[in-house]
Amino acid sequence: MDRRDFMRTALLAGVLPVAGTVPALAATPSLKFRELYVRGNELTDKAKALEGKSVEMVGYMAPPLKPEIDFFVLTKLPMSTCPFCESEAQWPDDLVLALTKEPVSVVRYTDLIRVTGRFETGFKKDTETGFVSFVRLVDVGYEKL
């Protein structure tokens, strides 16, 4: 499925609202990156309360390894290897793993996206990729802002 097909499917399925045409998911609580943790990986009361619920988060899709993906990493700021900041890939502590229902296309890592999905917490290792995550959004859809 290319990105346009995904967008169409998502729109038909009501997963992917387009700003101005579909009302925002008013009932879906939004969760900011800075509302995830009190300190380290100690979750805030708000984050704990949203466990298992559908939430919206706004962030950036970190550059994935392949063009079509069924998961991506959502970051607070665009994730890239800044020539004067990082001599190696240094992942931030507050990234969120986003798992999609179906394969989706990649957006540029500097495009702001709003992601909606079921909020899960707790360490989990993906058996296929070996990727260890602590905070996840499951069955996500996203819209580009």
Partner: peptide, 8 residues
């Protein structure tokens, strides 16, 4: 972001 650092 300093206040959220794990080790302080």
């Amino acid at each position: 972001d300093r206040a959220k650092d794990k080790g302080g």
